[in-house]
């Protein structure tokens, strides 16, 4: 009896130890690149279905936008195209654009063409996509309307050089207690339609809790990473309301100062 019991226990333990887990066999299905994205608009060319996604609902400030191109006949996801996006705000008597970013290459990344825009005001915007050299030979322009909600992630400041600058908070989108990536974009307004990225400034950052009267250690000032993006690190030592003070200088001369408010849950 004892021997049988021992054998049974040994078998159970052996099966448990050497059995495979749920993920160790089988073929993983192709991951859907749009799974966690919001579909914000669709459009059509002659042979191509154009779907526009964003990683969150559109708000004033910096938004990541993704374009998915599918051949209407075959349903195949197109991997090659040249895309140029232009956001347009039609205010009746005038139009203006906003800072935007287009795909760096003519190839999709994981099936999607990444773009970006800094919506400088809320309301209805038109996203113009000029599509060329598509893999299926198609080409054309698609214009889709999108709604942009107001948010407090964008600052418009006038610099000491009298130019107008837009500073948009890219990260953290969902701030957490501890170390977070801190990223902003800086663009200068040259005209109603031209917003070039600012790449030659120095940025210092200081997070504080106004209600507590203290800041936090181990922050890293943002440095330029390309296309007007400045990236550093911010440490939120506790949950609550934080302010991130920014000082932007050029060649050692203070250009502008601004501040972002964040609520850390």
């Amino acid at each position: 009896m004892k021997a049988s019991l021992l054998l049974f226990i040994t078998l159970v333990i052996g099966i448990w130890l050497f059995s495979c887990n749920r993920n160790s066999t089988g073929v993983d299905p192709e991951p859907d690149p749009t799974k966690d994205l919001h579909r914000i608009a669709t459009g059509e060319l002659e042979k191509t279905l154009v779907t526009v996604y964003s990683d969150a609902s559109l708000q004033t400030g910096y938004c990541r936008i993704y374009v998915l191109l599918k051949d209407r006949n075959t349903g195949k996801v197109l991997q090659k195209a040249r895309i140029q996006m232009t956001p347009i705000m039609d205010m009746g008597d005038m139009k203006h654009s906003a800072p935007c970013e287009n795909p760096q290459t003519g190839y999709a990344e994981n099936g999607l063409f990444p773009c970006g825009a800094v919506f400088i005001m809320s309301g209805t915007w038109q996203l113009e996509f000029l599509l060329q050299e598509l893999e299926n030979g198609d080409a054309g322009k698609v214009v889709v309307p999108v709604q942009v909600a107001p948010a407090n992630r964008l600052k418009q400041e006038t610099g000491s050089d009298s130019a107008h600058y837009f500073l948009a908070l890219v990260e953290p989108r969902s701030p957490k207690v501890g170390i977070n990536t801190f990223e902003i974009t800086i663009h200068q307004q040259e005209s109603m339609m031209a917003f070039p990225a600012v790449t030659d400034v120095e940025v210092t950052m200081e997070p504080t809790m106004p209600s507590m009267g203290h800041g936090s250690p181990n922050n890293e000032h943002p440095i330029h990473k390309g296309k007007g993006h400045y990236r550093g690190k911010v440490n939120f030592t506790m949950s609550g309301a934080w302010q991130i003070a920014l000082r932007v200088s050029r060649n050692g001369q203070l250009l502008l100062q601004t501040m972002f408010d964040l609520q850390v849950p």
């Binding site: 809790m209 209600s211 506790m238 949950s239 609550g240």
Partner: peptide, 14 residues
């Protein structure tokens, strides 16, 4: 918890 006397300031927590 850190509860500010300013009613508009949300509480902080650590």
């Amino acid at each position: 918890q850190m509860i500010s006397l300013d009613a508009e300031s949300p509480p902080a927590y650590l």
